[in-house]
Structures are given as C-alpha cells and as structure tokens.
Amino acid sequence: MAIKPEEFNFAKNDQFNNSMIPGKMARYLRTCKIWQFIRFIVLNIKMLIVVSKSH
C-alpha cells in the first residue's frame, strides 16, 4: 500500500514521529479560498477584539 503524503515525514526522524502532522483535509482547507475567506473575516474580528482590549 502506498504511503499517504501526509504520513511520509513521520518516518524521517523521532522529532517528526512524535509530532502532529495535518492530514489531507486540513491541508486542503489551509488554502481553500472560500474557507479561508471565512477565516479571514473571523481572524480579523478576533484580532480587532485583542487590539481594542490593548489600547
């Protein structure tokens, strides 16, 4: 069975093997334009709240 791309780095060393590596869906969502547009709005709101609490 072919190794899944997201699992490839686990075998490289102990540091990587003990880490959490994102799977196919998580990686896709990171650059999915529609999902990221929603996150853009959410992140801006969250950041503005922190900025407003800091002034």
Partner: peptide
C-alpha cells in the same frame, strides 16, 4: 479566550 493561532492563506492575506 483571546490567545489563539491558526495557519492558512487568510493569515497571509492579513
């Protein structure tokens, strides 16, 4: 509640 982190394209746009 106010400490968070997220990786993605949206972060780059920001």
């Amino acid at each position: 509640d106010y400490t968070f982190g997220e990786i993605g394209l949206a972060g780059h746009w920001i």
